[in-house]
Amino acid sequence: MFDANPHLRFNSVLRTTILSGCFALTAGCASQPNTFTFTADLPPGFAYQAIAVYVPAKGETCTVPGGRNTEVGYNLKWRESYVSTAEIALYRTVSGCPLVIRRIELEINASYGKTRGDFGGDSANVAVRYELEEQYQRTFSDSGESTFFGECQWWFRTSGKPRILRKILDCKKTNAQGEPGKGRPFSAYTLGQLPGKVVKMKISLAKEERPGWGDTWVKVPGGWKRCMGKGLEDQRAYCNGNYTDFSHFKMPDGRVCTIYPGCTE
């Protein structure tokens, strides 16, 4: 489904289409790059996946059979091989149909344990349009870089009868000063802004983790203690006013603990 080698996109059909009209860009655009750079500044141990999604260019009535090869993936195997920078094409031709980039679907991932399932992830998005209202359009620095921001936070909970500790990653949009906004990290650009430019996603990590949902853990000196609930069989185990009876839990590495994150009091 994905283009295994995104660096070989300048096939003869694409070059001919760009030179003959540049997909409705302004005159002289044949000299402009057909790519922009996407990069990410992430906390240690974090990685992103990206899927660039393409649709028929403006004015085109063609379709791609089955929608095959209309998406290009980056860092899909982020555990084995991760590169923080990607060159992303603005225009591609697939099955004779001229396509234009519509959006970049992003997944921010991070591991908290050693097994393959010990990871959390959340989404982000970059939209690309022919035109945008000024309030939604990002600007670029003199060096040709535009940065959008977000903050991720770990939420912790327990799962199963052994009450194994699991984590959920929650990422929100922020401004450059770290003040939270609504929704996931997001940015939008026009096609005319992007040739040869750099788009950067900068994500910080919240200093404190918090319980996955309310009234299940109690804040105590040195960390958090897990409420017992009705007993170890009680999967939800709400405190319900009982802030003296607590249970042990198991860390992803197998340690049996009574307080998070220090394990022992």
Rank of each mutant, 00 (worst) to 15 (best):
M1T: 11
D3K: 05
A4N: 12
A4V: 12
N5T: 08
H7D: 09
H7W: 01
R9A: 11
G28W: 05
C29Y: 09
P33M: 10
N34Y: 04
T35A: 00
T35V: 07
F38E: 03
T39K: 14
D41H: 06
P43R: 00
P44I: 00
A47H: 03
A47P: 01
V55M: 05
K58H: 07
K58G: 00
T61Q: 06
V64N: 10
N69A: 11
T70S: 00
T70F: 00
T70E: 08
V72D: 04
Y74T: 06
W78G: 07
S81L: 15
V83P: 00
E87V: 15
E87N: 09
I88N: 04
L90Q: 06
R92S: 02
T93H: 05
C97N: 05
I104E: 03
I104M: 10
I104T: 02
I104V: 15
N109A: 14
G113E: 10
R116W: 14
R116Q: 10
F119H: 04
V126A: 01
V126E: 07
L132H: 07
L132T: 06
E133Q: 05
Q135T: 05
Q135L: 00
G144T: 04
F148Y: 13
G150Y: 14
W154E: 03
T158V: 12
S159K: 14
R163V: 09
I164H: 05
L165E: 07
D170N: 10
K173A: 11
N175P: 03
Q177L: 14
Q177E: 13
G178I: 12
G181M: 08
K182W: 11
G183C: 08
T190Y: 08
T190D: 10
K200E: 02
S204A: 12
L205E: 14
L205R: 14
E208D: 15
E209P: 05
G214Q: 13
D215C: 04
D215M: 06
K219R: 15
P221C: 08
G222N: 10
G222V: 09
W224F: 11
R226C: 07
K230P: 09
K230W: 11
A237D: 09
Y238W: 14
T244P: 03
F246C: 01
F246S: 02
S247T: 12
H248D: 15
K250C: 05
K250R: 13
D253G: 01
R255Y: 01
Y260N: 06
P261C: 08
C263L: 13
